[in-house]
Amino acid sequence: MTINPSIKQLLILSGKGGTGKTTIAAAFSKLAGRSVVADCDVDAADLFILLKPEVKEKTEFHGGKKAVINQDLCSRCEFCLQSCRFDAIVDYSVDEVLCEGCGFCFRICPSNAIEFNKNLSGHLFDCRIPENREFLYAKLLPGEGNSGKLVTELKKKASAYCTQKEKEWLIIDGPPGIGCPVNASLSGVDAVLLVTEPTLSGLHDLKRIVRLVQSFKVYTAVVINKHDINKEVAEQIENYLHQENISLAGKISFDEKVVTALQQEKSILEYPENIAAQEILTIWNSLQTIRIKI
């Protein structure tokens, strides 16, 4: 599928969890008029809580397969036990938590006692939010793997909407960490906004996610959230960004109203007189000028 170059995909990531990705994503989805919004944190999707979408369609997601041993046919030869690299065969049955669905046991079993079937690993929700816009999110079933595949599915759907409906933005709320769902969400985006906080952990994790994002060669900017919690570390972050030639998209002040808004399941933008709301607005406006360059 060719993606219309006038659609810009903006991905919000952080490395460290809990720095404010979803708060910012929720604000941006209100500000970006002609947009599609996608929540790619499929492990712990939270954006729907603020956007209160109307679910139009729920589809099943089968990420992989799982093996099951038929006890009537099993001859106790233990070939499966020896072949499984994931220690998933325990007492002649498959521990479904440990099974990664490679099929080794199924193929090696001389008694054809192992079944190998598709496994339901999550759901995709196709929704509408105000102004008749599309919002997509997904929920991985607790404990499942294959989150990267689910993110890819979700993004495919979201991009298709963007092209069909001639949107300007695809706003993507990303997962924490630097693992497979993060990689899957990075593929094909035009810009990444990294949300960090002025703590030594925040800076440490920022450096790791920056290395990952740089390998994707995509426009990257950073937001320092709660910057006034520790001005020294905030300054260290700014120095680091300067060294790496990464632009600072803006700083957001620690504002108790952010927590209050969240507790009432509202976007911070519903408190426009508040400092954090104004700062987020400024960041959004600065992204509009960057838009032409990316």
Partner: peptide, 12 residues
Amino acid sequence: PGTSCSMVAAVN
């Protein structure tokens, strides 16, 4: 963080 395979690997 999360509830997927890494979290399970740590908690199981």
